[in-house]
Design a protein around this nucleic acid. Structure first.
Lengths: 339, 339
DNA sequence: TTCGGCAACGGAAACGCTTCCGAAACGACC
DNA sequence: GGTCGTTTCGGAAGCGTTTCCGTTGCCGAA
């Protein structure tokens, strides 16, 4: 049976149903202008012949592509993958296909915006945690498709994200509340992102929190590193070598925090007895390593972005900036400072 | 300049290059029968106009889609994401677009193979770490496209993977070499995969290693759990409650190992002084947590699969089963048993 | 009876490419 | 110089839909 499904096209269906192709097309697409009886007949014949439209021909002749491009700077890092997972789930539920574009590093990035490989291939593009510069926005613009963003900072496009400064404050306030006053910060930046962007709300939170608590800033307690756990380990080593080491460390991400912890453990320090460490994100391993952190709903951000896109595609209005809440998760890596 | 790029098609390119569409098409597709000079001119013009072929038209007219579907059971777990990352990188370098299909859970899985959403949309499908059953193979078959696999076990399709049993042996042999004789195993299975598959080489390795070492099997030392770190933690608790607890734990994955370690630490046990733990995979956090493990090159498997696919698509012959080597990575979670 | 209007439907022109087939150009070789 | 084989290239026929315009038939109103 299945093998006989050779090459039936709409013309065959139309003929078998005794109508013109125009009518067949309208019936199949549930457009109006077709008598109910006729529609049913066409549908029945189509089913009988197990006919499916050719997406290419359909698109060529004027329909949508039914595809959306997703641009991500990283795939194998949990945060990005989780975002993607959320997005994909709602898009595919809506029968949209997801075209994945991994833009890795500055060169690839340039190439992407230059060649616009997704051009003419999709109905929309969503940029995941991917700050786009001015010029890049212009380039994207000439694809002439809907654009939305997720997981990054606010953008000129409809977008969903968290408030980094709030998240940072939740972490810092927790440390402060426990009584810490010598708090270090390991700030992380993504070397793949152009410098122009990243006004780091997570850093601002640190400064603001100290100021509000009346604690003078000690520049030697903040270290900035490229993203990554190893970097976190190095940063911690640096911090440990300060004349007056901190009693707590605020890391911009859980991975960095984990790196810091490794250094601490190797140095024979106990956590949280000797030193408290807090991260941000609530990476799955945070739970496995008893790391106190600030959770952000990652998959949900992806899903939200997906729904947003769907309504835009349907021509509905949507919010422009949606911000999802973060939440302090207290686990075993933080405690009051030692007497 | 760029904004005038509204609707350029191959006819425009041909005209601008002073050739016919036939020639333009041949040049763009790197077919032969075109003078080198001509080809270069066409390519230059195309670049200049930032032209990209319409996949629909191309496909409709008989060419291929330039797209490949990637089917994954999970996205946000490191292993799968890394595989995907490797694959995507080589595919995109070859100017192939990647259509991502996340098949999540048994229901979704059924739906996927039933509806075959990728049908008529791609030139090939690669299944990532995704054992496919007999019936599913049949369904896939009637898509009539190339199929390859990566990151799973051997398959009826060309595929790349590691030897799970070898990997397991490397882990076990390390423990044995250190002098451990009471070794526990925490076996992990993926609840999303049908039971029929998964003949777990990682488990076989455990039994074989013990046998070869002349150590009698103690059933109470093996616990099987669903995949996931929390499960690992529970399993470890169970192991700890045994009358004669193990001196070392062999976990099927790093995540599971991490879960086990959390339980150990919470119980006040030190690693590796009181107990050794070894995992498999070399998840990035393994390095951050000083976990001894057996590394498998994940991204590389994805890349390999990609190259394999490319040559098949080019009509070349390739190996059917390629197996990549694994390697013991000794870090701080294993040591000789206490006295 | 005639006519305007409307719903249902058909003809045929795109849509943007690939590819078959034949023409032209160019050497090489007798 | 003529013949033949290669290359290189152009004309044009599809590929399977959608959609713009018409046409037809029918009903109610004038």
């Amino acid at each position: 049976m299945a093998q006989s499904s050779q090459k039936i096209n709409m013309a065959d269906v139309a003929r078998a149903a005794g109508v013109s192709m125009a009518t067949a097309s309208r019936a199949l697409n549930n457009e109006n202008g077709v008598a109910e009886a006729t529609r049913r007949r066409v549908l029945a014949v189509a089913e009988e012949l197990s006919y499916v439209v050719s997406p290419e021909a359909s698109r060529l002749a004027g329909g949508d592509t039914g595809r959306v491009a997703v641009v991500v700077p990283h795939i194998s890092r949990w945060f990005f993958a989780a975002l993607l997972e959320g997005l994909e789930s709602v898009l595919r539920a809506a029968d949209l296909d997801v075209l994945l574009y991994h833009v890795d590093g500055i060169e690839d990035r340039h190439d992407f915006f230059h060649r616009l490989p997704a051009r003419r291939k999709v109905d929309a593009v969503v940029v995941l945690a991917f700050p786009v510069g001015e010029e890049e926005q212009r380039r994207l613009g000439l694809m002439g498709v809907t654009i939305i963003a997720a997981g990054g900072q606010h953008a000129p496009y409809p977008n969903v994200s968290i408030n980094d400064e709030t998240a940072g404050r939740q972490a810092m306030d927790h440390l402060l509340f426990l009584g810490h006053r010598r708090i270090a910060m390991i700030a992380a930046v993504d070397p793949d992102q152009p410098d122009e962007v990243q006004p780091s709300g997570r850093s601002n939170a640190y400064y603001a929190a100290l100021r509000d608590a009346g604690i003078p800033l000690d520049e030697r307690l903040v270290v900035t590193v490229d993203w990554g756990g190893d970097q976190g380990a190095d940063a911690m080593a640096k911090l440990l070598s300060r004349p007056e080491p901190p009693t707590a460390v605020y890391a911009h991400s859980d991975e960095v925090a984990l790196g810091a912890i490794r250094t601490l453990r190797r140095a024979g320090l106990r956590i949280p007895e000797d030193l408290s460490v807090i991260g941000i994100d609530d990476h799955p391993v945070a739970e496995l390593t008893d790391l106190t952190t600030v959770r952000q709903p990652v998959r949900e951000q992806g899903e939200l972005a997906g729904r947003m896109l769907l309504s835009i595609l349907r021509g509905e209005e949507t919010e422009h900036d949606v911000v999802v809440p973060t939440q302090l998760v207290i686990r075993g890596s933080t405690a009051p400072p030692r007497s």
